[in-house]
């Protein structure tokens, strides 16, 4: 018989390295037509980081995502970056890019101010224009300002900056300190069906709510959550590297190391929790790793809810669930009264 159950789990997760310095540096160049080129030492590892970083540069410069091109991943051409690790790219590299873009924008403002007859601090960059704050009709296209800056004034608008999250070392005895600048939070609910004859667990639905500060690109946040959940399902139910007594892996292949495929994926519903972190670029934090954190716990709790057995060790394979069910049934049998 199949039994339904649901389980909940929540988590917290830090952005960046534990105490250790993990800086990112960036260079932003505004070209003579108002488009921009960003140099970053991070690498696109498939998560869409470059798209998000481009949006951060575009936002600061008041231009659109397509107006920004990113040059990345070349130690000869790009400034240092601690890399695509620790869910740090949006927050740390993003802050560096925002700061570098602000430097470039400062030059644009200084060049535009006399053209518009105002002081630089009275200007803002918005909708591909440099405009007077409060008087948006007084404006110049950013391309015109950038061209004037480079070709007439001889001041190419570019900026460079670096960012390192502020931390405080942990006391070696008590661990007290400020190991991270900021954290993200999340909760997931899993709905499962457990077959009490085979021990098989089917995950029907996962509902996920993730805080990432400002979602710079909601589509990419949702993509991260969905991908993280697939890893979480594998950790919960299927994946395990097994060793023989000599220390040899016995399943180092995708025939015997079973990963979830699209057919194993439950319905996934993602909510992005409204939040804003003043220390992140435009309020953003990050989302990469946390997405795979609460899934296995939520599934394990759903298994308990469905059939009343606590899985103490992952993965909750059919064999393990069945053994636990047998043990539970054996314990439930009463010694007959005399």
């Amino acid at each position: 018989m199949r039994h339904r159950g649901r389980g909940i789990a929540c988590m917290w997760y830090p952005i960046g390295f534990t105490v250790a310095a993990n800086p990112s540096a960036a260079v932003v160049k505004v070209n003579e037509d108002g488009s921009a080129t960003v140099l970053t030492g991070t690498v696109e590892t498939g998560q869409g980081a470059l798209t998000v970083l481009g949006q951060i540069a575009a936002e600061e410069l008041g231009i659109a995502a397509d107006d920004v091109h990113l040059v990345s991943g070349d130690t000869d051409a790009t400034p240092m970056d601690t890399g695509a690790i620790a869910s740090r790219t949006t927050y740390v590299t993003g802050n560096a890019i925002q700061m570098a873009a602000a430097e470039a924008k400062k030059i644009l403002f200084e060049v535009a101010a006399p053209m518009l007859g105002v002081r630089p601090e009275q200007l803002e960059a918005r909708d591909r224009r440099i405009q007077v704050i409060g008087f948006p009709q007084k404006n110049l296209p950013i391309g015109e300002v950038a061209h004037h800056a480079q070709v007439v004034m001889g001041r190419p608008p570019l900026g460079s900056a670096s960012y390192n999250p502020p931390t405080v070392a942990m006391d070696p005895e008590t661990g007290q300190g400020k190991p991270f600048s900021t954290y993200v939070y999340a909760a997931q609910v899993a709905e499962v069906e457990v077959d009490d004859e085979t021990g098989e667990v089917e995950v029907l639905r996962i509902v996920a709510a993730h805080d990432c500060g400002t979602p710079i690109n909601p589509t990419l946040v949702e993509g991260q959550v969905e991908g993280g959940i697939s890893m979480g399902v594998g950790l919960a139910l299927q994946e395990e590297i097994l060793f023989d007594a000599e220390g040899r892996q016995i399943n180092p292949n995708l025939t015997n190391y079973i990963m979830p495929t699209s057919l194993d994926m439950p319905e996934v519903e993602v909510d992005i929790v409204k939040n804003y972190d003043p220390t992140g670029p435009f309020g953003a934090k990050g989302v990469g790793e946390p997405t795979s954190v609460p899934t296995a716990a939520a599934i394990a709790n759903a298994i308990y809810d469905a059939v009343g057995v606590r899985i103490h060790s992952l993965p909750a394979t059919s064999e393990k669930v069945l053994m636990a069910l047998r043990e539970k049934r054996a314990m439930q049998k009463q010694i007959p009264a005399e």
Binding site: M170, K178, T182, V189, V207, V273, P278
Partner: peptide, 22 residues
């Protein structure tokens, strides 16, 4: 746990969001 004062905390909001959806 390390004595850091936390900001932009959203655990309860996350829990309430999933609870509401299911």
């Amino acid at each position: 746990p390390t004595g850091q004062v936390l900001h932009s905390v959203a655990v309860k909001e996350s829990l309430e969001t999933v609870a509401h959806r299911v």
